[in-house]
Amino acid sequence: MQYNKMNFTVGLFMLSLLLLLLAFIFFLLEEKGTFEKRYNYHFTTQSAESFSVGMPLKFSGFKIGVIDDISLLEDGSVLITFSVRKTNAKWLSQGSVLLLIKPLLGAAHINLYSALDSPPLQDGEAIPIHISDNINDLIVKLQPVVSKSLNVLNSVDKITTDLADENSNLKQILKNLNIFSERLANDKSLLTSVTGDKTSTQNVIKSLNETTLILKDVKKITSDISEITKTLKQDIINPSSSTIKEMHIIMKDIKNKLQTLDATVKAVGGYDKDLVELKKQISTGLQKSNQIMDKVDAIMQNENNSKVELP
């Protein structure tokens, strides 16, 4: 009797589970719009290029429909049929326009532009389409820019050719400047013409002579200093330099050793962390295996005793 009751309960449970599962699947499909009525519309175009079955139809960035069928008509044009769900049919109205977008990057899609105040479009009606080819538009826009750039480059080329010519005005000016500077350097009367006074010219020449003498003295002093520094180099700088070089080698060696030590210390630190992590993982593994063993004990021993049995 009790066995029958248990059978009935299990059966009831399974039946409820099945019903719930079916209801769940039904709601899921309903939410996806499987049972909802679809509205069909069409448009004609000269070429089926860029169109494909399953291509999305977007409104304000949202996908509201897809192309269902593409067929070739007797006059050579292409008839394209698309459908939208009942809830999205409201977006298609009299005066709505489709625009095929072919972006530089990404897949082509159709955009819907609608005047929402207009009466809604009936099921099966036609709708006009325009094609926006982003790549060709870009090329058309770039053409005037390219031709202007070519003009500019031609002008630059002409200017540089003129400047390179031996008889060009710029070359003549540079030659004249050269002749003038030579005369200024050699001819006293030219200097007078710059200063405007002969006495001043004499003074300038005298100053220049004195400067020459001073420079000679400076040269002698510097040669003396050079001698002194040579002695310094031999007696002090060279030995010090070699000591510093040795010190540098030693320091370099110490630095290398410290770097190696640092790496070792870091590695040891890393192992330490690894070990802690490993220990944690082993502990977790043990805990898990203990839990399994508890369950195995419960099954194997087939006991329902909660009290420890003493020997």
């Binding site: 419960a298 006991e303 005793n305 909660s306 420890v308 049995e309």
Partner: peptide, 16 residues
């Protein structure tokens, strides 16, 4: 709710 008691008793039985 007193699973600890059952588990403990089972584990001791296995220990024996």
């Amino acid at each position: 709710p007193n699973q600890w008691q059952y588990k403990s008793a089972n584990a001791f039985s296995s220990y024996t």
